[in-house]
Write a protein that binds this DNA or RNA. Structure first.
Lengths: 246, 246
DNA sequence: CGACTTGTTGATGTACATCAAGGTACGTGG
DNA sequence: CCACGTACCTTGATGTACATCAACAAGTCG
């Protein structure tokens, strides 16, 4: 794995897992918690820029994000990078490697991160002995975000959609303060997400800011008028229903 | 459900399930087969054009495709249609509705189809009593095709990729005869898949045909030079590893 | 302090959308 | 059988959203 591993030596006990505070996640039954506790094998702390998983590899573990941001991406043969989506706290990383024996994309940390490590051999125990948890795993797999990228939309629509989408996801895990969010993406990340050039992204982002629906500074996003922003995005505001793991 | 339902009255017994012929799919243990047999509740035959599932609905069943083609799509607020991917025999339809209680896209039959119907209440039994099958379900969910659409590629690259992708998927379920495939898509479907205008798709498709790597006629696709086509698509030829359900 | 990463802006070319028209095949009712 | 509609494919003309190239400015870091 590239990047530095920060080993704290101390493990957060599952009873104090920071994820348990999120109301979007369901409560565990006591026996589920007991199982998950022995399921967890260690904690991993990494710096921003670390490659967590590499496309094509299968050696990986299965992680749950405790905090920090990451992104999933593919490198195209011509050297460009396509970002597929973003990883936030409570998301899984590495399920594909565990299920399919091979990652179909890479994952890189956007910020320093804290991850909870599950040994993939125990995934099978989970299926055999904890069908409720197995169901949750499938639920998460079925729900994984796709298609930020969809179809014939103009640059301004897609940027508005991306900002709104990220803000709403961050909101679900309490990363926002009122209408502001510490958003760790650079403009290059956005461009690589939306499949457009950096230059055009920059110009069009300024047009979005010009509508007074958002404020944007290098590591900070503020939503000023959510409905208007959604109207620019064309997309209907979808309720992302919450249902839970860990 | 829109469209006509063709009820044959006769149900294919699971032992004779047409899917069992595909070598890409793993064999069942006898007890798995026994379970699946009582799991199945009926068979559904529909005409081309039938809407199998509608975005936002949850009333749906869970289906396995026995034969025929379908496509998953979303309608955009401005009336355009974005096709997300295609459904072939042995694929699941409606897993999202069963797991998430709400479809995030619609599904329409491209040809006449034969589907195997599972009552979603029994999905829970499956998780409780057949962890191997539950594992397979998750496997399928994790594997679901995404991103035909990815990033900044030219029209000719994306068309070449789409043709190759569809051909290879069809090959896996023995829908091809040598280098030819009865491909039920119209040019409008391709345009809606790739997010480009019908006119531009048409012109660029002819450019692809001009390279002599494929032959295309309204309902038929023939691959003349797979490697050259892959080179046009830019994409590396990915081995799509097979592992199995039903 | 320079080296580097990130953001900003203008000039030029092109891949694509849109508009507009027409062509071919197939089916249906008279 | 023909007249007609409808679905699908084809082709040319025109405009624009975007990529690419090329600089430069501002912030950050060892």
């Amino acid at each position: 794995m590239a990047g530095t591993e920060l080993t704290s030596g101390w493990k957060v006990p599952c009873e104090q897992c920071p994820l348990r505070a999120y109301e979007a996640l369901r409560d565990f039954a006591p026996e589920e918690l007991a199982f998950v506790r022995q399921f967890k094998c260690s904690e991993l702390n990494v710096h921003a820029g670390t490659t967590l998983l590499l496309e094509g590899n299968n050696s990986a573990h299965l992680y749950t994000v405790l905090n920090g941001w990451a992104f999933r991406y593919k490198m195209l043969p011509d050297g460009r990078r396509q970002i597929l989506n973003y990883v936030l706290p409570a998301d899984f990383v590495g399920l594909q490697a565990s299920m399919l024996n091979e990652m179909q994309h890479s994952v890189e940390a956007l910020t320093d991160m804290m991850l909870c490590v599950f040994p993939r051999e125990k995934l099978w125990d989970l299926y055999r002995n904890h069908p409720t948890l197995a169901f949750d795993v499938t639920w998460l797999a079925a729900r994984e975000e796709k298609i930020l990228n969809v179809g014939r939309r103009t640059a301004i629509e897609r940027i508005a959609f991306l900002l709104l989408h990220l803000f709403m996801r961050a909101e679900q895990v309490r990363l926002t303060k009122g209408n502001t969010l510490a958003l760790p993406l650079t403009q290059q990340h956005m461009a690589d997400t939306l499949g457009m050039s950096l230059v055009h992204l920059n110009k069009t982002l300024k047009r979005v800011v010009g509508t007074k629906t958002v404020r944007w500074k290098p590591k900070s996003l503020e939503i000023l008028d959510r409905e208007a922003l959604a109207r620019i995005a064309t997309y209907d505001l979808v309720d992302r229903q919450a249902r839970p793991f860990i």
